[in-house]
Nucleic acid binder design. Sequence first.
DNA 1: CCGATATACGTGTATATGCACGCACTGATG
DNA 2: CATCAGTGCGTGCATATACACGTATATCGG
Lengths: 141, 141
Amino acid sequence: MHALMTSAPCTCTKLRRSARTLTALYDEALAPSGLTTPQFALLRTLDRAGPCSLTAFAERTGHDRTTLSRTIGALEAQGHVRFEAGADKRSRAVSLTEQGSAAIARALPCWSQAEDRIEALLGPDRARLFAILDRIEALPV
Amino acid sequence: MHALMTSAPCTCTKLRRSARTLTALYDEALAPSGLTTPQFALLRTLDRAGPCSLTAFAERTGHDRTTLSRTIGALEAQGHVRFEAGADKRSRAVSLTEQGSAAIARALPCWSQAEDRIEALLGPDRARLFAILDRIEALPV
DNA sequence: CCGATATACGTGTATATGCACGCACTGATG
DNA sequence: CATCAGTGCGTGCATATACACGTATATCGG
């Protein structure tokens, strides 16, 4: 009775594997820019969000706050972002440096190349994929 | 001219974020079993594949071989898998221990619970998602 | 049989990720 | 104003992930 179940594929594992494959593709495309895919995504999000507390940023990107504490820390060490005083003495506001903006500009054509390749591969299914992933992200965890 | 492009969402980032969300869901469901989602997936794959070299296993799961060298190493330390002599003096064969089989059996109902939840959330879109992810995984990287 | 190439593997290093925990500061309450 | 719950953060620890590189073994050509 459980025979089918125990051999059924795992949605999570499937998604994780695809994410690895896709990340390799994007990382290769982004390599000339010196940014990884997550780093590029963080910088671009920051560019749109403007100066931002870590907690707000984490909520926006769906990361754990302590994860950002380090990934953003690496971006700061590379000079792509800067920390300024926040509203409180508790909080810090992250903002993009000029170097960070330049890195985004440099990386954009690389990223477009990868994105175009996915667009060519998936066509209209890309929008369907996004819609399905939206439902997953909306899950109450 | 580039205004639209620069604000377009990134397929890779989207997929990565969904993978994080889904992993949190599965990890929570699997917590009573003491296994993480990747560990559960590895054990189950090993159960199906039978004793297997690391390289063959890596090809099957789509991981880098050196990644498995460590994740499998952790499973060995926990007693879930065992290394035996391979065909060569070079290679080692990984195989499931009885404890590993027991861990799978213990984890299966937990996993089913998570999987059922996704099935309920996505319905027929789950199969569409799989089809799209298959195309991504088939990418020549 | 010997040397070159190919194969199977591990390790050093680095990023990405998140949980548990603790610290500093803020704001409300009595 | 003294206290205490709540908020914003960082760090210790652990897993997952992969690239660059080195090592051991195998295999093939001459």
